[in-house]
């Protein structure tokens, strides 16, 4: 039996902006404008169909929902005004909340990003990737960072990245200093997290 409505209703009610996908008319503009379409198994368009068709497992386990880079092209172009990226992020959060990790790398990178903000109040091009790589452990992390050496060099050439001395495990490095009033920022972030949890719960 296809097109059971239980999962669709769950998405409409519990996922951030989930109800907006009701008006999708399957034109495919999101799919054709997405710069990451080739990396995706499904496009946003097809994900919405799968939601309507009640394919819970396929949707929540799909790495696509964590591939969105928030470029906003789909949201700008959607003729029905669906905030596609909000729903993609909403679905990713919802999956994580249900104990499913659709895409391990994105999760780790997100954590590294969050940690960086939480600990220093800044996002730094040098520290976040290193933190992300080291999530896999010391050896694997170094290997991974070396494999991305060319990207790092290119970034450096373009003056997007300043070389620093990294001393794990404690990232106390000259240059990546903390912002003023970090404690206040952390209070805000804690509060926001609590509010988010309350809403989802």
């Amino acid at each position: 039996m296809d097109y059971q409505q239980d999962f669709a209703k769950e998405v409409y009610e519990k996922v951030d902006s989930g109800a907006e996908i009701k008006v999708c008319m399957q034109c495919g503009v999101c799919a054709s404008t997405c710069p990451l379409r080739e990396k995706m198994k499904y496009s946003p368009r097809k994900l919405w169909t799968l939601i309507r068709a009640g394919r819970r497992q396929e949707v929540l386990n799909c790495p696509d929902i964590m591939l969105c880079t928030s470029c906003y092209t789909c949201k700008v172009r959607c003729p029905r005004g669906i905030p596609v990226i909000d729903v993609m992020h909403g679905l990713a959060h919802y999956a994580l909340e249900k104990g499913i990790t659709p895409r391990e790398e994105t999760k780790k990178f997100g954590e590294a990003f969050w940690d960086s903000i939480y600990e220093t109040g800044r996002v730094d091009e040098a520290t976040v990737p290193i933190k992300y790589c080291l999530k896999d452990g010391m050896i694997a992390g170094l290997k991974k960072s070396l494999s991305m050496l060319d990207i790092g060099m290119a970034l450096m050439k373009a003056k997007r990245l300043t070389p620093k001395l990294f001393i794990p495990p404690n990232f106390f490095i000259p240059g990546s200093h903390k912002i003023k009033g970090l404690k206040d920022l952390q209070k805000m972030l804690d509060k926001a997290k609590a509010m988010g949890a309350r809403k989802e719960g």
Binding site: Y3, Q5, A8, K22, V23, C24, M25, Q26, R80
Partner: peptide, 24 residues
């Protein structure tokens, strides 16, 4: 193909909002 020219496009949208499922 859903063919709802002019204002009837709004009716199509409203039906979707009310949870009608369209299958092509």
């Amino acid at each position: 193909d859903v063919r709802t020219p002019s204002q009837s496009e709004e009716v199509y949208r409203e039906a979707q909002r009310q949870g009608v499922i369209f299958i092509r």
